[in-house]
Amino acid sequence: MAGETTMLEAVEGLDSGVLRTAFSGFPCGIAALSAMTEGAPSVLIASSFTVGVSMEPPLVMFAVQKTSTTWPQLAEAPVIGVSVLGEAHADKTRQLAAKNKAERFRGVQTHAGEDGALFLHEAPVWLSCGIEHTYPAGDHDIVVLRVLRVRVDFSHQPLLWHRSLMVPVSR
């Protein structure tokens, strides 16, 4: 598949796999959005996470599928912890996103804030956020979050999602 090219195809009638492949060609960061909900940890993995939506007020955003069963739980949390995933999470990312919610946090070290926000250890960035707005967008919703607190630890390198693979960023 390396170096493979295809013809430009019209989106109407396009196989969703082709579109997914095209979208995977854009490298992006991966974030874990998590909080304690109903006494248990909940996590949603987002490769659609975007920082710098606004500096004043400080806003970030991500897109979530309308069929998500985790988002309705997280949406009820007063504060959501956003952990930008780092190299240490490479072997745990798919587990954190797994359908089996009971197994998601197995072997994953976390830090719970007093407000219920949950963060993953060894993440280069932690953002404590509240929901600012939600907008419908096709089969997803766009969620804008207001950043309340920030922690940065660049001794940990971030992960990128590119062509359906997790790739560590090297200096």
Rank of each mutant, 00 (worst) to 15 (best):
M1C: 05
A2M: 10
G3Q: 10
E4Y: 08
E4W: 07
T5R: 14
T5W: 14
T5P: 03
T5L: 14
T6C: 07
T6R: 11
M7G: 02
A10V: 02
E12Y: 04
G13K: 13
G13C: 13
S16R: 11
S16E: 12
S16F: 09
S16Q: 10
G17A: 08
V18Y: 10
L19H: 10
R20W: 03
A22Y: 06
F23N: 02
S24Y: 04
P27W: 05
G29A: 12
A31L: 07
A31F: 03
A31K: 02
A31Y: 02
A32M: 01
A32H: 00
L33S: 00
L33E: 00
S34G: 13
A35E: 02
M36Y: 00
T37K: 04
T37Y: 02
E38N: 15
S42W: 04
L44D: 00
S47D: 12
F49N: 00
V51C: 15
V51I: 15
V51Y: 13
G52F: 06
G52V: 06
V53H: 05
S54N: 12
S54F: 09
E56A: 10
E56I: 03
P57I: 04
P57E: 08
P58H: 07
P58T: 03
V60E: 01
Q65K: 13
T67A: 15
T69E: 08
T69M: 03
T70D: 03
T70A: 07
T70N: 02
Q73L: 13
E76V: 14
A77L: 08
A77G: 03
A77C: 05
P78V: 14
P78S: 11
P78Y: 15
V82K: 09
S83R: 11
V84F: 12
V84L: 15
L85A: 07
G86W: 01
A90Y: 00
T93L: 10
R94Y: 11
Q95M: 15
A97L: 09
A98E: 09
A98T: 13
A98I: 08
A98K: 05
K101Q: 14
A102G: 01
E103D: 13
E103N: 07
R106W: 10
V108K: 01
Q109R: 12
Q109G: 11
H111I: 14
A112V: 09
G113L: 02
G116W: 01
L118R: 01
L118M: 03
L120Y: 04
H121I: 01
E122H: 15
E122G: 08
E122T: 04
A123E: 05
P124D: 05
P124C: 08
V125K: 11
C129W: 06
C129R: 07
E132I: 05
E132V: 05
H133M: 10
H133Q: 15
T134S: 15
Y135V: 14
Y135E: 13
P136N: 04
P136I: 01
G138D: 02
G138Q: 03
H140A: 11
D141Y: 04
I142T: 07
V143H: 01
R149Y: 03
R151Q: 13
R151A: 11
V152H: 12
D153E: 12
F154I: 11
H156R: 05
H156S: 04
H156P: 00
L159I: 06
L160N: 00
W161P: 00
H162I: 08
H162D: 09
H162K: 14
R163W: 02
R163T: 07
S164L: 06
L165K: 14
M166K: 04
R171A: 15
